[in-house]
Amino acid sequence: MIHFDNVTKVYANQNRPALDHVSVDVDKGEFVFLVGPSGSGKSTFLRLVLKEERPNSGAIHVAGKDLARLSNFKVPHLRRRIGCVFQDFRLLPNKNVYENVAFALEVIGKPRRFIRKVVPEVVELVGLEGKAHRMPDELSGGEQQRVAMARAFVNRPMILLADEPTGNIDPATSIGIMKVLDRINRTGTTVVMATHDAAIVDSMRKRVVELEDGKIVRDQSRGVYGQAY
């Protein structure tokens, strides 16, 4: 599903590579934690998968597509197959829960009938039934992140990328978020989650890929976060 082959990324005006000869494979339906300290290259990895950045060398395949040969014109179609969740939720403050989720379908031109059918289903899947008409500022952080997950998942992507989704949420609420991610994973969606949260990684017992200074230092199935942290 995601295939990195000897990928190196150096940002302009920086000497040290953000990713240094990284090779990794993520299969369909897998749940992968991407761990490591700040600046270790986790976010760069996610940005490369979305083709928001281009690698300096190496090849990246996502959903069977060679990103180097994917024209800019087709990048939006790649992104429709990838859902994204962030630490800061990125909801539209002037739209309610339903509208925020529907927005993701509206802007890719889905028919209204389809939107009316699938949005309530996804809102229920993330556990926000009955709150479809709340505005984001009326929701708790955990609930806002559920909206963001509903928006990321509403188009049934093959891959869900989560960049520190529990970073702004207290540990008790984080468990609920992880349950939703797990539920999404069980529908067959590949999930890649970058995180600092040792407790969550340890409790989930999923594959762990650890980055340090842009290099993979550990790739362990059913791993834990590691003693150093």
Binding site: N72, C84, L92, A104
Partner: peptide, 14 residues
């Protein structure tokens, strides 16, 4: 808005 549109794969034209 445009950031989200980009993220969810809205076409450039849109």
């Amino acid at each position: 808005e445009t950031g989200i549109m980009r993220l969810v794969g809205a076409s450039n034209l849109y």
